[in-house]
Every structure is written in structure tokens, then in C-alpha cells.
Design a protein around this nucleic acid. Structure first.
Lengths: 338, 338
DNA sequence: CTGTTAGCGCATTCAG
DNA sequence: CTGAATGCGCTAACAG
């Protein structure tokens, strides 16, 4: 009967004692690091099975200086973009036996700091960091202490640190060009408060497209808000209250775009009839909205896999000493909202 | 300049040496477990800061027999239901300094087994397990070895194991009752292949509602498919091919319902005009679909928090020895699709 | 108020 | 082919 279960974990010592061999031998039948006679191997295996021995990865990690664990630090795991990253990561790392420690930070710099610090103390073998903050002393600290770091989303690249991202400047550019080609005249941009990372790069691309098209850039049309559904709604409200309201709104991601849709609906406006709305990310549900969201696809699963690959290379030392930078080409996905 | 960073982690020994005290003293200025003079405290703190010392949680865990880590094993982190669970878990556990190891299993029993086994070897302090498999010997193994386990989603309760779930029988019942009250005659149910857990319980509730209403139960109307968007589409196709097709379809979760919507659309059918569709979970995007999805809300964030609370209680020993079972009342969220 | 020592569980020299 | 001994970094008796 399933007992209270205070049965202690069995250790390698228990196995050795029961099998009448040394712990060294037990260790070696497990690792195959050196030959062990067939007879002892059999006996040891038998005892292991009987006792239900599970090697303690903590002890192993302490000894080997390797935890087979990587950290994934993201703003919000609830944003559908990040579970895909997590999945991609796991796809690459799982087969290698490495597990993923996930933390949401709400993009709060102090929380981000604390999370990264936690991960350092846990001696993770690698760190995938997605954040919006400009100054990541703590991330740098992780890198300095020898933990391979890969930055997700175009944070200002730091020397020696790998980056995986969509090409956000290009993304902002093709998105704006698409809207221009559709005949929209006053194109606004809802972005985050920080002036770095993907959001900033997308704005940069947007400005470039305007410039190339000979359009004026109006600072009042880029509004900075919290990157969330609510933030998108608030930003949209602000834009619609402008004397010269925009006829199209680019949003820094799909979740924000959904908020913008909320905002337009709250004012009784039709999308794209009265205002067009366009997002970034192409989360799975973008196609299911009404109107179906026009957006920019950035292949999150593949990004997650790329992060995993990079981390793996750093772990087994097969990576070039130089930092790598993997950029994914964005593509406009034209649907109904713009 | 940010170096190659092979700088070794500094250990408590380094700090002690540099500060000219014993490691015991360093340990105690950190833990406050015993008084240390103001002078030494100051000196030690200074050295800690200078050297950038970060206590090694691995060593600490080995010594303390506690990792401050819990595992979250779910079918698919990409299903929006689970990130909310993860978030709720973190909400409760983060402040206590415990981190969450997340794994997706695709509901594959062998993957589930491997994941749980991994978690045991990592000596996680707790395990939150959401799966559909009937037989979880491995989960039982975790419990037996003293790891507090909480089952998510009404898997057959096991003696001594906590459960957090929505009340799925009640959920299935109110959903079916709702459809009956709306006048639907032939109500189908798309569920998973396994005959256990939330999906099975929801079907049970559905059958109860039919029985209470004096309706016949038709086995051909419950179709078993993979629980995914594609599975939902396939199941819907099968239902629509029936000689007597249903006029309403209950789906075991919203993702499946979205697939069912896909399936209806593929046949050129209108929802709810030709077939009504109803889901479970009330994922955030349910309200944004067209038609907006009628579904059953089960409060995932709160469930995640409940799991965290339960785990925390087990960790600090404040929990009753008896297993707890927390059921969340489901509620129909009437929208457009049914 | 502080230091010495043992041991958590394991991999790995070094010695047979 | 096998063992004994060491140490990864830390906490907690035990002993001043």
C-alpha cells in the first residue's frame, strides 16, 4: 500500500553495501567509465533495480560542476510567444538530459535581477534571457562567471554574448511598408517604455520605412506603454483621443495588438474600417481573432530551438569563441485587421 | 572588458580566507543562525561584495536535503492553460525562493515517466503533475520516496496524494445542461483517448446531464481523439460525417474546440447556426475568437496558486497528514458559439 | 563570539 | 578488474 513515503532516498552507498562491492564499482557500472566484470555488473544492476536507486543529480552536479539545467528568464510565460520558446528549448535540450528552469519577471528589472541571481546560485549551465531592460549588470555577471548566456530579442548586443532574435529592424520596416502600400496615411506605433530591445528596434525599422517613403515622422504617434493587453488598450485610447488620430496602428506585439483591438472596440470603432491594427509575433491565436490579426511572423519555436542549439554548443565546447548572432527573417502575414 | 569569463565561481572558502575567518563564520553571517560580532560581519560582507560571492545552492541542497525547486510536468506548455498554472505556481513559490522546473510531455506516458524520473533524480522538493495517463507508477514512486506530489486535473485520486482540479464532473454536467437548455438535441462530446482524468470526468458529467434530462446516450457521439487543435478538427470531421450529425459539440478543452471550429469551417458550416461548439478552460483567447467561444471557466491561475500553496504546506510540514483535494467550481461562460 | 570536523552523494585519482 | 581515499561547497554539531 502506498505508504506515507518517508522512505529515504537510497544512495550509492546503500547499493554498494547491498551488492557487496565498493561505491567505486557501482559508479562504474553506471557510467561505463571503466570495465567491470559481467558478474559484478549483473549483481549491481540487480540490487539497483531492487532498491530503486536513482543517482542524486545534486551530488553529481556538485562533483562534476555541471547541473544539466538551463534557465529561461522571460517577461511573462503567459504571453503565448514564450511557451513556444520554452518548447523549442526543450526540444533541443531534452534529449541531452538538460532541464529548463522557467521564470517570469513581468519585465521588472529588479525581478529580472533577482531571477538571474537565483540562477547563478543554482549554477545553471546556461541562461536564456529575454527582457527589456537596458542595463543588465546581473546578466553580465552570469556571463563573467562562465555561464553561457544567450540573449533573446534584440537587446543591445554585448561583446561575447550570443543573441537570437527576429530581425526586428527589418520587421518594423516591412510592417510599416506594408501599411504604407495599403494606403494608410497616419501610421502610429505602440511600443514599450524602455528604449532598447525588440520594441525599440521595431520602432527604428518603422522610422526607416517612413523616411524611405518620404513620410514625416510624428513623435506624438509613437506611444510608450506597458507591454500587455491592458497597455495596448490604454495606448489605443490615447491615440484615438489625439486631434489627428492615426488611421493605422502598429503594435509591438500581438498581445498589445489585441489590447489595441479592445481599445478600438471600446470606442465603437471598426477595424480596419476606422483604424487598422497590426501586430508582431503571429501568435497562434492571431488568425482566430475577429478581425483576424495582420501581423509579422517571427518563428518563435525555431528561435527557441536556436537558443537551445547555441547553449548546447557552448556546453560541449564546440562553439566558436566568438559570440554568435542568429537573426530570423520576419515576414508579414496579411489577414483582416490591416 | 567582458572577458571570456572562465573566472571560477568563488566559494565560501575563498571568502573565509580573504576575510581571515573560518568558513563557519562566513556561513553564519549569511544565515544569521548564530550571532557574529559587528566587526567580523562587516568585514565578511565587504569581502563577499568584493569577490562577488554567490552561495552554491547545489552544495547547500546536498547538505540540507532540500533543493528549493519544484517540478511542473504538463502535457504541453504551449496550451495556454498551463502557462497560467506555471504563473500561479510561481506566484506562490517565488517569494519562498523556490524555482520551477517545467517539462512538456505531449501526454506521452513514456515521456511522462522519464520526466518524473528526471525530477526524482534532481531531488525536487515537490512535483506538480498534470497528465492523462491512467497508470503512473513513476508518480507513485516519487510520492513513495517522500516527494510531495499534487495531481492536477482530476486524475484518479491515489491514496495520500493531493489533488487540485476543477470539478470536472460538475463541469461536464453544467455544460451539457446549458446546451440542453438552449434547445440542442444531439449533443456530441470530443474527448481524449484515455479513459481517465479531466476528460473522462467531463464526459461522466455530460452523461449525467443527459440522463437527468431523460435524453438517450449515444456512444457514437463521443469521439476520442488526440487532445490538440488538429485532433479537434479531425474529431469534428468524423462527427459531421455521421448519418445523424450532432447539432452541438462539447469539446474537452478550448484548444480542441478551436480545432472543432476549424473542422466546421472546413465543411463550410456556420457556428452556431449549423453546429454549436462549446469548450472547457476559458483560455484568454476564447473571447476573441469568431464566433466568441462559449466555454466553461475553471480558473487556472487560482489552480496554480492552490498547487503552490499545497506544495508549500507540505514543504514546511504544516499540512495535515491526510491528502487534500481542492476542487474549483466551474462556471459556464456563455458567448456566441453555443 | 569563533573554529574544527564530519558528512550530504557522487566521480575520480591513486594503488593494488 | 577492484578499492580506498579525496574533495566538490556547504551547514551543523561539537568544542572551545
Amino acid at each position: 500500500m502506498p505508504q506515507q513515503g518517508r522512505r529515504r532516498h537510497v544512495s550509492i552507498t546503500d547499493v554498494a553495501a547491498e551488492a557487496g562491492v565498493s561505491i567505486t564499482t557501482v559508479s562504474h557500472v553506471l557510467s561505463g567509465q571503466r570495465p567491470v566484470s559481467a558478474a559484478t555488473t549483473a549483481k549491481v544492476r540487480k540490487v539497483i533495480a531492487e532498491l530503486g536507486y536513482e543517482p542524486n543529480q545534486l551530488a553529481r552536479g556538485l562533483r562534476l560542476q555541471r547541473t544539466n539545467t538551463v534557465a529561461l528568464v522571460v517577461p511573462d510565460i503567459t504571453n503565448p510567444f514564450y511557451p513556444l520558446i520554452a518548447r523549442g528549448l526543450q526540444n533541443m535540450l531534452g534529449p541531452a538530459g538538460v532541464q529548463v528552469l522557467v521564470t517570469s519577471t513581468d519585465a521588472d528589472p529588479s525581478v529580472e535581477d533577482a531571477a538571474v541571481q537565483q540562477m547563478i546560485t543554482r549554477r545553471v549551465d546556461g541562461l536564456a534571457f529575454a527582457g527589456y531592460q537596458a542595463d543588465h549588470r546581473r546578466v553580465a555577471a552570469a556571463a563573467e562567471v562562465g555561464i553561457p548566456v544567450v540573449l533573446l530579442g534584440g537587446l543591445t548586443p554585448r561583446p561575447g554574448i550570443d543573441v537570437v532574435s527576429s530581425d526586428d529592424v527589418a520587421g518594423g520596416e516591412i510592417a510599416a511598408k506594408y501599411l504604407i502600400s495599403r494606403g494608410y496615411q497616419r501610421i502610429a506605433f505602440i511600443t514599450g517604455v524602455e528604449r532598447v530591445g525588440s520594441p525599440a528596434n521595431r520602432v527604428a525599422g518603422y522610422r526607416k520605412a517612413l523616411r524611405d517613403a518620404g513620410r514625416p515622422f510624428s513623435p506624438s504617434l509613437v506611444v510608450r506603454e506597458e507591454i500587455s493587453r491592458d497597455g495596448g488598450a490604454r495606448a489605443m485610447a490615447r491615440l484615438l483621443a489625439l486631434r489627428q488620430a492615426p488611421d493605422a496602428v502598429l503594435c509591438t506585439n500581438d498581445v498589445v495588438a489585441i489590447g489595441a483591438l479592445d481599445g478600438a472596440k471600446a470606442r465603437g470603432l471598426k477595424v480596419p474600417g476606422n483604424v487598422a491594427v497590426m501586430g508582431f509575433d503571429d501568435i497562434e491565436f492571431a488568425s482566430l481573432l475577429t478581425p483576424a490579426l495582420t501581423t509579422v511572423s517571427i518563428r518563435p519555436l525555431e528561435q527557441g530551438e536556436a537558443v537551445g542549439r547555441l547553449l548546447l554548443e557552448r556546453l560541449d565546447g564546440s562553439a566558436p569563441r566568438q559570440a554568435q548572432r542568429i537573426l530570423f527573417d520576419p515576414a508579414v502575414v496579411a489577414r483582416e485587421s490591416a
